[in-house]
Each structure stands twice: as structure tokens, then as C-alpha cells.
């Protein structure tokens, strides 16, 4: 039983015409799989490699360079990134991170027991005018307090 559905395979194949080389579809393919399955398992890596005509280790080599992709346990339904870089740090970003860890009962990088939220720290999210800020999946939220952030995560 393959890990990647025919629909996911077709979405990956649809990226091929944009590039002169299938290897360039590595990141797009990893994003497609990661979004859909909330992780990229070793079996998924083998199937992506087959589609891109690469050795699985080439896909793995690229994927593990980016801290972005989870390969062992699936992400929670919502992935929350709290910025810890300078502009946020100066305006309470680290207190926000610690407060959310406390409320959700997780450490950075962990997923809540009910599988609803994965909480992580991030380096500069590029929303420094609204520090402290966080991403929920890829939506940015700015000028947060611990309460407003917790509310946004719950929604």
C-alpha cells in the first residue's frame, strides 16, 4: 500500500513543467506531502525519490538540511511557531513562548497529547513591526499577548 495517494502524486507531477530538472521539485514535493500527511516518513521519502528519479538518500539529504520537515512523528493539527529572534525577544517573545509552553503543557518542539497543536520556536518571522509575533501554520499574527495568542491557537 503506497503512502502517497494518486492525488498527491499528480500534484507533485504538476510541478515538473516549471523546472528543467526533476530534482528541483524536491522542496515542492516535500511541502505537498508534509502538508497532507503532517510528516514525511521514510517510506514517503522512497516514493518521492521514485517520482523524481533520485536516490532516496538525495531526498533525505535535502530534507534533513531544513529543520522544517518532521520525519518521525506527525505534526499536530495546528503548527504554531513563536518567534525568538531579536525584535521579538526585546518585546516579550521569549516570555510568550514560555507562557504558551506552560498553558499547553509542552516543551518547544512537542505536540499536545490530543494532537491538536505542535508548538515550536522560530527564528525571525519577518513581522518585527508587530513583535511579539507567531505563525499558526503559515498565517502570521502580530502584537500578541499570552492571552491573545492562546485564543488564536484555540480557534
Amino acid at each position: 500500500m503506497p503512502v502517497l495517494s494518486e492525488e498527491l502524486r499528480n500534484r507533485i507531477r504538476a510541478e515538473f513543467p516549471k523546472y528543467p530538472d526533476k530534482r528541483a521539485v524536491t522542496l515542492p514535493a516535500l511541502h505537498i506531502v508534509h502538508d497532507a500527511l503532517r510528516m514525511v516518513s521514510p517510506a514517503a521519502i522512497v516514493e518521492i525519490a521514485e517520482l523524481l528519479e533520485l536516490h532516496p538518500s538525495e531526498v533525505s539529504d535535502t530534507m534533513t538540511f531544513y529543520g522544517f520537515f518532521h520525519d518521525k512523528t506527525p505534526l499536530g493539527k495546528r503548527r504554531v511557531w513563536v518567534c525568538r529572534s531579536i525584535s521579538c525577544m526585546l518585546r516579550g517573545g521569549e516570555e510568550l513562548l514560555a507562557g504558551l509552553c506552560n498553558r499547553l503543557g509542552v516543551k518547544p518542539g512537542q505536540t499536545t497529547a490530543d494532537g491538536s497543536v505542535t508548538l515550536e520556536y522560530a527564528e525571525c518571522l519577518g513581522a518585527c513591526e508587530g513583535a511579539p509575533c507567531m505563525l499558526v501554520n503559515d498565517e502570521c499574527h502580530m502584537n500578541l499577548t499570552e492571552d491573545s495568542a492562546a485564543e488564536l491557537i484555540r480557534k
Binding site: 516549471k18 523546472y19 522542496l27 515542492p28 538540511f65 531544513y66 529543520g67 522544517f68 527564528e123
Partner: peptide, 12 residues
């Protein structure tokens, strides 16, 4: 002219 968007994966 073709313009394509390519998303990164969080690396400075």
C-alpha cells in the same frame, strides 16, 4: 516570460 513561485523551508 514565465514566473514561478518557489517556497523555501525555513533556512536563513
Amino acid at each position: 516570460l514565465d514566473v514561478y513561485l518557489h517556497r523555501g523551508a525555513g533556512a536563513y
